[in-house]
């Protein structure tokens, strides 16, 4: 195992579906943690944007999720595993502008079909797995040199 593979921090966070009042707090907490560790500002920004979009997706569509944060010396890995309806057509969901959001979600400034594309744009590796009726898992990584 090289130094780059060593996990410096692993922490789990719970995200609750439909809880708009607190939607965004997990991303804000993670941002504070990463700032304290001293990760480059640009990497924190990209990761925070990805985390916030992922968190709001859980709030809007899923019952609950666990976000697992793993910090390495030159990368951060995140897994967001939710219990929820799943995505019937992942390829379609990745198209910018495609959305199944309700009016309420749009009135809150989300659900414009940009969430998943925004996560992909801001990360160096992005994998999405989904099973209808069970849930969706996102895995992404942001690295720096």
């Amino acid at each position: 195992m090289t130094a780059a593979d060593e996990v410096l921090l692993r922490e789990r966070f719970r995200i609750t579906g439909s809880d708009f009042e607190h939607g965004g707090e997990v991303s804000a907490r993670i941002k504070s943690i990463l700032k304290e560790i001293g990760i480059p500002v640009e990497a924190i920004r990209r990761l925070s944007i990805a985390n916030f979009e992922a968190e709001m997706n859980v709030v809007m569509y899923a019952d609950e999720a666990t976000l697992t944060l793993e910090v390495f010396s030159n990368a951060v890995r995140v897994e967001v595993a939710d219990r929820g309806p799943g995505i019937p057509d992942v390829e379609k969901a990745m198209e910018p502008g495609f959305s199944t959001a309700t009016e309420e979600m749009r009135a809150r400034g989300f659900g414009a079909g940009l969430g998943l594309p925004n996560i992909e744009r801001n990360t160096d590796e992005f994998v999405i797995e989904s099973e209808v009726g069970t849930g969706t898992t996102l895995r992404y990584r942001v690295s720096w040199s």
Binding site: G24, S27, A28, S48, G109
Partner: peptide
């Protein structure tokens, strides 16, 4: 948009 998400957006970005 005056919800708390506007503050989170400004913070993360």
């Amino acid at each position: 948009l005056t919800t708390v998400q506007s503050i989170h957006t400004a913070n993360v970005a």
